[in-house]
């Protein structure tokens, strides 16, 4: 795999890939070699030449039936072995066999028992953003998941809309997140920044459903976590969120381009939903999501991100203040 493997599962996949790659390469060389040999050696040289009329050769044919069959058997064996050693799957008889549909309480209890996990994150994949909620329920981030490195993390993934797939190439296996089911992912990775994206086509902005995992040493992780909690309770905008909502839904046309779950805003022009906007890292993926930046954005989107589809809506300072207050309630 060209993305360097960092997890146990990814390394297993990588090993298997190398074995299979070598075997395939041998078959490739044999076949292409025979084609080239035939073309060079057996070109028609005289218009009337008549080669010997060979109809077949049973021994040879048995040979190229049996040898590939054996090769297939061996590779199958390797693969099953790899599967059995992967944490993401478990063997067919082990309790973790079926990571997808274990969504009743009994199954959940078995999961807790069977795997030592240091941190469990609730993940919601929705059109078109990944949202990560930390165990105490206070902190939710969008797009970027920050975890302690060298610890076993479990993600419990769900979706309120269509199928998505969570995948960090460096971690190995991807997994579908199906409506009405919970999918589970385990990983334990060294410090670093990893990037991946939703891997099932899930509608218009599927390409934007990118996600990052930042694995920090334990102490840095702790510090980051406390900072985030502190930021949550810090000062926000001074406007009136109630009035902001009214502007968004009625006085202005924000709703026609944007979607916010559970409201009349179901527009599809903006690539990302505003559901949970307060937890986004960025505004329009260009500037950090702070109250000041948001004011600037609403004042003139083009100034922040030239070429953006979002128009300048000529809002008054008071409107902006109220909208900022409202937007910051969208967690």
């Amino acid at each position: 795999m060209l993305v360097p493997p960092v997890s146990h599962d990814a390394r297993l996949i990588d090993e298997l890939f190398r074995v299979v790659y070598v075997l395939s390469f041998i078959v490739f060389i044999i076949v292409e070699g025979l084609i080239i040999y035939a073309v060079i050696k057996f070109r028609r040289r005289r218009a009337d030449e008549m080669p010997e009329q060979v109809h077949g050769n049973t021994a040879a044919e048995i040979g190229w039936t049996v040898v590939p069959a054996l090769a297939v058997g061996v590779v199958f064996g390797f693969s099953v072995d790899t599967l059995n050693r992967m944490t993401a799957r478990g063997s067919p008889t082990a309790p973790l066999a079926h990571v997808h549909s274990l969504n009743d309480t009994e199954a959940r209890r078995r999961i807790e028992e069977a795997k030592q996990v240091d941190l469990v994150i609730e993940v919601v994949g929705r059109q078109w953003v990944w949202q990560y909620t930390y165990p105490d329920g206070k902190l939710t981030t969008n797009e970027t998941l920050v975890v302690p490195a060298g610890k076993t993390i479990r993600l419990d993934l769900t979706t309120p809309d269509v199928i998505h797939a969570w995948w960090m190439p460096a971690f190995g296996p991807m997994i579908y997140v199906n409506p009405g089911e919970v999918s589970y992912v385990w990983f334990n990775v060294p410090p670093g920044e990893y990037i991946g994206q939703c891997n099932v086509f899930c509608g218009v902005a599927h390409a934007q459903m990118i996600s990052k995992v930042r694995a920090l040493p334990q102490d840095e992780y702790e510090r980051w976590y406390q900072e985030q909690l502190a930021a949550l309770s810090g000062p926000t905008a001074t406007g009136d969120p109630q009035r902001g909502q009214d502007i968004f839904m009625n006085q202005n046309i924000c709703w026609s381009c944007h979607s916010i779950e559970g409201t009349k805003a179901q527009g599809k022009v903006a690539p990302r939903t505003l559901t949970g906007f307060a937890n986004y890292d960025t505004i329009a993926e260009v500037v950090p999501n702070t109250a000041d930046n948001l004011r600037a954005w609403l004042h003139d989107p083009q100034a922040i991100k030239p070429g953006t589809t979002m128009p300048n809506l000529n809002l008054s300072a008071q409107d902006i203040e109220d909208l900022v207050a409202y937007l910051q309630t969208l967690k």
Binding site: V31, K41, F42, R43, R44, A60, E61, A69, V72, F76
Partner: peptide
């Protein structure tokens, strides 16, 4: 397993084609 097994009959065809060419008089 069943998916992999398809490689076998397909391989049989591949090699039979190759050996149809080998020893022939190829009109390119």
């Amino acid at each position: 397993l069943t998916t992999m097994i398809i490689a076998v009959p397909t391989g049989v065809k591949m090699f039979n084609w190759l050996f149809t060419m080998l020893g022939g008089s190829l009109n390119l």
